[in-house]
Design a protein around this nucleic acid. Sequence first.
DNA 1: ATATAATCCGACTGATTCACTAGGAATACG
DNA 2: CGTATTCCTAGTGAATCAGTCGGATTATAT
Lengths: 146, 146
Amino acid sequence: MLISSKGRYALRLMIYIAAFGDEAGHKVALREVAAGEDISLKYLEQLVRPLMQAGLLRSVRGKGGGYVLARPAEEIRAGDILRAAEGTTAPVACEGIEGACYRAGLCSTVKFWTGLDEVIERYVDGVTLAELARVPEIDLRLGPSA
Amino acid sequence: MLISSKGRYALRLMIYIAAFGDEAGHKVALREVAAGEDISLKYLEQLVRPLMQAGLLRSVRGKGGGYVLARPAEEIRAGDILRAAEGTTAPVACEGIEGACYRAGLCSTVKFWTGLDEVIERYVDGVTLAELARVPEIDLRLGPSA
DNA sequence: ATATAATCCGACTGATTCACTAGGAATACG
DNA sequence: CGTATTCCTAGTGAATCAGTCGGATTATAT
């Protein structure tokens, strides 16, 4: 699981939709996200596509349209978003499994890398979008420099 | 902490040196590693440089020379190798800390990313080179396809 | 001494990915 | 109809990746 800025932006996008698109199905237009999160509209359009394909978002086209979470925020995990955004979940592709696994140390590295991936997956799947979108008042009271 | 093939090769290189350069200061030449691990000599030369700078390897120049672990394998952590190989430890650079932290959800994402980084660091620093270099007989008995 | 084998050093390269931008088509609301 | 939105495809400059290449330096072995 490697994380580029694509994943970071996708997370911010989803958090925004979770926070401002209320449960009554209030749609969030990308133009609004672009202004609120300071990301270009055109870039957001690209970010949204894999999230749609992954079934995390639903869209309403035309004027007044926008995006809504396809599932409640409690049921969307950060891992779902990151996996969708970062094309392949390619952690550390261990291509050495077939050919060279008899070599010294290679077996142990494969175990090492898969272990690392498990640790990461467990972490990102342990955090829900609802938790990320919930901004406690304490944090709001503290300013940017706090 | 993002891991490219540079980090993977560096780990294999270090494991090889740990496994075949015995404690009596037996030097391992890159030519040997190149043959054993099927990595080009020229590429290995590049990989070795940051590992030297990080103080993980010592070198002996000239004919009959090679590389030795600068510290015992028990005191070298996988994290040390990866941090050295992958230039910057750049995990998820959160540049949003100064300016936009008051925005909705951004504080929580920063916490999320730093948490992820901690999880990764804890994992890679919890594995020593000695553990990776130790190949149990069971694994040796099983063939490549096992 | 000389050939050889190794570490060192810096540049270069083709391919791919990153982080966007651009233009426009389809769709639906007013 | 006009406008605001999602949708689709392409392109692009910069950076990174994964190596290659040529040679300089250093020391051992013969």
